[in-house]
């Protein structure tokens, strides 16, 4: 039994060590040359523009469902008119960043792990190195930059679309006047909330991409291994997003409020 725990512990320690090495190499790759500009733009397009549909749909329906649910609850206190406050605060501080990050984990994290995993099992990573290319600079850095900078952009879009979704439910189903909804949305927002909603996605984007790249590059065992890596990237990425969200929230509350 002890040997089993020992083995598990060693494996976990090795994974953490390799993750730290990868992150360090990626950060060095971001600040030093050579940089693969075409790959960077390609990843901004794939991760940013490519994720737009799923993020917009998620944001819209989350905002709409939130308006319906909170409308019911607020009715008990005669506070239906402040539904906008609840939606804006929830979307901007928490739901927008976390749901966008989870959607990115599902779409981008799985894609990265599968792509890099396939490259590992078909010797393409070896081929890159044999041709004089550092795989971290060529494959990880472009994805890291795209994830880091596009996650906040997508979160802002998700927040906005979520609030619009809530607005549509508020005016058509809850019969709240449009003006009242929008003034309620802005009244509840403080600068600290906006900062929190903007800072979080940078961290979450970083976590999603680095986790997926680490899992993808550690793939072994042929096509079955690629499948496993994809699953592990999504599961680990999702848990890491929720956990990172908690810790970042703790830190930001201490710093901002």
């Amino acid at each position: 039994m002890l040997t089993l725990f020992e083995g598990w512990g060693k494996h976990a320690a090795l994974e953490v060590q390799e993750y730290v090495f990868l992150v360090r190499a990626a950060i060095v790759g971001v600040v030093t040359r050579p940089r693969y500009r075409y790959d960077i733009w390609e990843q901004f397009d794939r991760i940013g523009v490519g994720s737009l549909t799923v993020v917009v749909l998620t944001g819209f329906f989350t905002g709409a469902a939130l308006a319906l649910q909170s409308g019911l609850t607020l009715d008990q206190f005669g506070g239906r008119s402040v539904v906008g406050r609840l939606i804006s605060a929830s979307m901007i501080k928490e739901l927008g960043p976390v749901l966008t990050a989870l959607m990115l984990t599902g779409r981008v994290g799985s894609g990265i792990a599968a792509e890099l995993g396939s490259m590992v099992v078909t010797d393409q990573i070896y081929a890159l190195r044999a041709l004089g290319t550092d795989p971290v600079r060529k494959l990880v850095v472009p994805r890291l930059l795209a994830g880091f900078f596009m996650a906040p952009v997508l979160t802002i879009i998700s927040d906005f679309v979520g609030i619009v979704g809530g607005w549509l439910v508020a005016i058509f189903q809850l019969q709240v006047a449009s003006g009242i909804y929008w003034s309620s949305v802005t009244q509840a927002l403080y600068m600290q909330d906006v900062w929190m909603g903007l800072i979080k996605p940078f961290v979450l984007g970083f976590v999603i991409v680095t986790t997926a790249c680490h899992v993808g590059l550690r793939t072994s065992g042929g096509t079955q291994g690629v499948g496993q890596s994809t699953t592990v990237a999504v599961v680990t990425g999702s848990v890491a997003v929720i956990a990172a969200d908690y810790f970042v929230t703790q830190v930001l509350i201490k710093l901002l409020y």
């Binding site: 070896y126 044999a130 004089g132 550092d134």
Partner: peptide
């Protein structure tokens, strides 16, 4: 080191088992 190896690889070509072409 890996960085120093890049120069040596400039004079080495390798053909992998399944080709390892970039898809």
């Amino acid at each position: 080191s890996e960085k120093e190896m890049m120069n040596v690889r400039g004079d080495l070509g390798m053909i992998f088992q399944e080709g390892a072409l970039f898809d």
